[in-house]
Write a protein that binds this DNA or RNA. Structure first.
Length: 154
DNA sequence: GCCAACGTTGGC
DNA sequence: GCCAACGTTGGC
């Protein structure tokens, strides 16, 4: 297998939390409706790539878990579901607009690595999280991944 | 709840 | 193709 990259995926814990993922083990990462985020899932994510799991709009916000990319990209089924808030009338089964991957649980971190802590750490100043704060699926450098996992050990 | 950042839409 | 209006994200 080609060497993959590391990623960060965001979720509001009231919507879908690390505990939900720990229980379900694996979930289709539905509802992403941003083209940059979609392109990462469709074009760059590889099965087995590590992904930090980030709680946004939380108290505090921060990285709370480690997951893994668990599937090839495929169309987000919710774009075809008229009752879903993620329904997209401009998409079709013949030419689906939104692609996703499955995300699988690896571990809950021993403690949260908060956004404040990330902002204050010199090795993490260049993180996409701080530069592209609204992007919900984003790349993480290998060195950044290692620093965050080490911080989580306390 | 406020608001800054920024992506999307649509008129022209 | 420009850009104003609008909607969403997410920190605080």
């Amino acid at each position: 297998m080609a060497e993959g990259r590391a990623w960060l995926v965001k979720s509001e814990p009231g919507d879908y939390s690390i505990d939900d993922l720990a229980r379900e083990k694996r979930v289709p990462w539905t509802g992403v409706r941003n083209y940059k985020a979609r392109n990462f899932m469709r074009d760059a994510m590889k099965v087995g790539d590590p992904a930090l799991f980030y709680h946004s709009n939380a108290d505090p916000s921060g990285v709370v878990g480690l997951a893994r990319v668990a599937s090839e990209p495929y169309p987000d089924p919710l774009q075809f579901d008229r009752r879903s808030p993620y329904f997209d009338a401009k998409s079709s089964r013949e030419d689906p607009r939104w692609q996703l991957v499955d995300i699988a649980f690896v571990e809950k971190l021993p403690r949260i690595v908060s956004l404040g802590e990330i902002k204050g750490h010199p090795a993490l100043k260049e993180m996409a999280l701080l530069k592209l704060s609204r992007l919900s699926v984003q790349p993480v450098r290998e060195a950044e991944l290692q620093v965050i996992l080490r911080l989580a050990e306390g």
